[in-house]
Amino acid sequence: METGGKTGAKPVPDVKFGLMFRCERLSVPVMRRVLGDTLRGLGVDEESVYDILLAATEACTNVLMHGGRRIHDYAVLTSLGAAGCQVEVADQGIGVRPRRPARPGPAAPIAQLPESGRGLAVMRACVDNVTLDSSPGRGTVVTMRKRIRWTREAPLRELRAAS
């Protein structure tokens, strides 16, 4: 189902890479380190990298918190191209139902504020488009797309300019 407001074009990837992690909390900072270093190495600018890492962190956290006990691993598949960056976070868990994002009004008493459930809202704020594909027994795939800015030395831009 579509959960993002803006349309993000599916990138035609110049580079596609996948990471597989065991379902343990340590995988979250490790994912961030590897994905961040790779995106920087490919010339994605720092602000875009941070937004992608924050969104991906929320998606991986949701796998670990809500995927259920049956899953042992999950995948983070990234595509990078002229249209931008796409990150898919996929598990074989029990599936989730999206909830409305928790965005409290200024006057909301703090006793009424939930202490979880903000992940999807954070993803939507960080990338252009978020889709959540989930059904019971089939696991969940969260797909995030973002137009990105490149650094001056980005090797992918060099490749495209030469072709």
Binding site: L54, A102, P104, I110, L113, R118, A121, V122, A125
Partner: peptide
């Protein structure tokens, strides 16, 4: 980094 997460969660007002 902290200002960003405060803002996108709406918790900057809290």
């Amino acid at each position: 980094a902290v200002r960003k997460i405060l803002q996108v969660t709406g918790l900057d007002s809290v």
